[in-house]
């Protein structure tokens, strides 16, 4: 943490509290149960609603129901990258250790979500397109996003020093963040060139509310679940990095 007195004046207090691993560990400990319950309720409720009560699609029948997992995981895989890049930037600029740890914890979560989105996309593709993989613009972008995550993870694991690894991956994820819109745009353009008019699956003209309401519940549920996993990973990482500090050792002894 940089103890630079000059920029302390204009930053709010909570920002510096966040910078303390111990404070972060305590606050996530308090938030965890709430988010855990919320995630459980929303995901369970959303799944039951989506599978049993939402109407079947007039074209695709019941197979469309996989969007209740596909769409939330795809949305989250993207938000997770943005979060990773922003956390990395904060760590880079203010030398904030906790931000580095958040960025590090984001990468494998985002990669798993991207993988989930790809897998559900493939499973959905089989009945819809008749093949497991189609070079659809969204799927291709998601695949490239997965590559970006894998690159970030590979770089992090190749560097031994925690601080250097955090800084290097922060630069890489920021470069990736600038590139994501360009990649998305280029892939969409490439797709329209090579594939004449496949019907869009996720952008249905006016999905009825009884279809998108459970989807909304699932998206919020996924966010809560993501928050829970992120906090768990973050707490793990805090303990690992701070293992030699007195408060972690006191914590270990009290157990």
């Amino acid at each position: 943490m940089a103890k630079n007195k000059t920029d302390k004046n204009w930053m709010p207090r909570w920002f510096y509290q966040l910078a303390s691993p111990r404070w972060c560990y305590d606050i996530t400990g308090k938030l965890l149960p709430a988010f855990g319950v919320l995630a459980l309720v929303l995901l369970l409720g959303g799944t039951v609603w989506a599978l049993l009560f939402a109407p079947a699609d007039y074209q695709q029948g019941n197979s469309f129901r996989i969007i209740y997992i596909h769409v939330p995981s795809a949305i989250l895989a993207q938000s997770c990258y943005i979060m990773m890049a922003i956390a990395g930037a904060i760590g880079l600029i203010w030398k904030m250790k906790v931000a580095d740890m958040v960025a590090k914890s984001c990468a494998p979560l985002g990669a798993s979500l991207a993988l989930l989105a790809l897998a559900t996309g493939a499973i959905w593709g089989k009945p819809t397109w008749g093949s497991w993989w189609v070079w659809d613009a969204r799927l291709t972008s998601m695949l490239i996003l997965l590559f970006l995550y894998l690159g970030v993870m590979a770089l992090h694991s190749a560097i031994e020093n925690d601080t250097t690894a955090a800084q290097s991956t922060a630069v890489l994820s920021l470069v990736g963040l600038v590139n994501i819109p360009i990649i998305k745009y280029s892939v969409e353009w490439w797709n329209t060139l090579h594939q004449p008019a496949t019907f869009k699956l996720t952008e249905k003209p006016a999905m009825p509310p009884e279809m998108w309401l459970p989807l909304l519940v699932m998206v919020v549920g996924f966010y809560c679940f993501f928050a829970v996993s992120l906090m768990l990973r973050l707490r793990n990482e805090i303990l690992r990095r701070e293992r030699r500090s007195s408060w972690v050792q006191a914590l270990a002894e009290s157990r």
Binding site: M1, A2, K3, N4, K5, T6, N161, T163, T164
Partner: peptide, 16 residues
Amino acid sequence: RNYEGDLYWRGEPMAE
């Protein structure tokens, strides 16, 4: 840059 603490050059913080 892997350190904590302050450096001053001619009385000014190093970063500036």
